Amino acid sequence: MTQAILIVDDDPAQRRILEEVVNRDGYRAIPVESGEAALAYLEGPSGADISLVVLDLVMPGIDGMEVLKRVHPAKPNLPVIVLTAHGGIETVVNVMREGASDFVVKPVSPERLHVSMRNALKVNALTGEISRLQKRQRGQLTFADIIAPSQAMDPVIRLGKRAAQSNIPILIEGESGVGKELIAAAIQGEGERAGKPFVTVNCGAIPENLVESILFGHEKGAFTGASDKHAGKFQEASGGTLFLDEIGELPLDIQVKLLRALQEGEVDPVGSKKPVKVDIRLISATNRDMLQMVKEGRFREDLYYRLNVFPIHIPAIRQRKDDIPDLVAHFIRRLAAEEGKEVVGISNEALGMLCAYDWPGNVRQIENTVFRAIVLCDGETLQVSDFPQIASMV
Rank of each mutant, 00 (worst) to 15 (best):
V82L: 12
E33C: 11
G240H: 00
K321M: 14
A29F: 10
R16G: 04
N308W: 06
V54T: 03
L291Q: 14
S213K: 03
E349P: 02
H218I: 04
G248R: 01
A85W: 10
K196G: 04
Q319M: 08
G47I: 03
T200S: 10
R138M: 13
N77Y: 07
E236N: 06
R318Y: 14
L182A: 08
G265T: 06
G87R: 00
I147A: 10
K273E: 15
D154E: 13
G177K: 07
V123R: 11
V82F: 11
D386R: 07
H72M: 05
N94C: 02
E264P: 04
T200F: 04
L242P: 05
I30P: 01
E129S: 00
L258Y: 08
E20R: 14
I312M: 02
S213C: 05
G189Y: 09
L159W: 07
V92A: 14
D228V: 15
Q255F: 05
D326E: 14
A40H: 10
N23I: 05
L171P: 07
P207K: 13
L282R: 00
D11A: 08
N94P: 01
E236Y: 13
G217K: 05
I30M: 09
C377W: 05
I214R: 11
N348I: 01
T200R: 12
V58T: 08
E173H: 06
L83R: 00
T84C: 04
A316C: 13
H330R: 04
R372C: 08
P149I: 02
F299L: 02
Q134R: 15
F234R: 03
G64H: 10
Q235M: 13
N209P: 09
L282V: 08
